[in-house]
């Protein structure tokens, strides 16, 4: 095993010829059946869109730029919208050992699985709420350094913009996974993606990438919120 790149707790490894992203947990225990190699949890790009984005950025040579755009530190606070059963959330939990991941998920079924992860980790805050109503989880939150969103809703960009407006610190990053098929199945996915990016108000888009071949008709958008001038 060889470490190719390593920044803010995210590593790119060479596993006998295969390129993999991974995070290093305090206790190396698999969460969703992933491989553990020398203390690293291998981050599956087919299951996690974030891993797909990281691998693609590594191949494109923009890994350092991407990760430094996210501006993560071990004490960062992350708002994760659409945490589902916690596959990706568990890796974020590895990345911010001294911070918090606020994991918002609306499905009771998924939350039941997520709860298992939340009990095993001490830095994930489960919130059973609807991400399209940001004010509902206001009583729990604080301003965060990163908003990560992966919800299969029609108004993905609007949800992201409203959550970023309310919870993202000035200068903080937004990572939005756009699932074009959830917005409009009949339209051309690329056109849908472009229209969604147009709808991202209040943040400045830094970079975007499609997630092929790991996820079809998905795009990742990284944006930054402007520092408030008052």
């Amino acid at each position: 095993m060889q470490i190719l790149e390593d920044l803010s707790g995210i590593s790119v490894l060479d596993l006998s010829g295969e390129t993999r992203v991974a995070t290093r947990p305090e206790v190396p225990v698999p969460v969703y059946g992933e491989r553990i190699v020398e203390g690293f949890r291998i981050w599956d790009p087919y299951r996690s869109k974030m891993a797909a984005l990281l691998i693609k950025s590594h191949i494109a040579g923009t890994f350092y730029k991407l990760v430094s755009d996210l501006n993560l530190s071990p004490a960062s606070k992350i708002l994760y919208l659409g945490a589902a059963t916690g596959t990706t959330a568990s890796h974020f939990s590895d990345i911010v050992p001294a911070g918090l991941v606020y994991a918002v998920e609306f499905s009771a079924r998924s939350m039941r699985d997520l709860l298992v992860l939340c009990t095993a980790r001490d830095n994930i805050i489960p919130i059973l709420e609807d991400a399209s109503c940001p004010e509902r989880y206001g009583p729990f939150l604080e301003p965060v350094d990163l908003v990560y969103q992966d919800v299969a809703q029609r108004n993905q960009a609007e949800i992201a913009a409203r959550n970023a407006a309310r919870y993202l610190k000035g200068g903080g990053a937004l990572v939005l996974m756009i699932k074009a098929r959830s917005v409009d199945v009949t339209a051309d996915p690329k056109a849908v993606y472009k229209a969604e990016v147009e709808r991202l108000a209040g943040v400045e888009v830094i970079s975007s990438a499609d997630l092929r071949p790991y996820h079809r008709d998905h795009w990742a958008v990284v944006a930054r919120k402007e520092v408030e001038r008052r």
Partner: peptide, 13 residues
């Protein structure tokens, strides 16, 4: 915060 959130989610579930 974590223990309160866990408790609330369990009640909601």
């Amino acid at each position: 915060l974590r223990s309160t959130a866990l408790r609330l989610v369990k009640i909601q579930l």
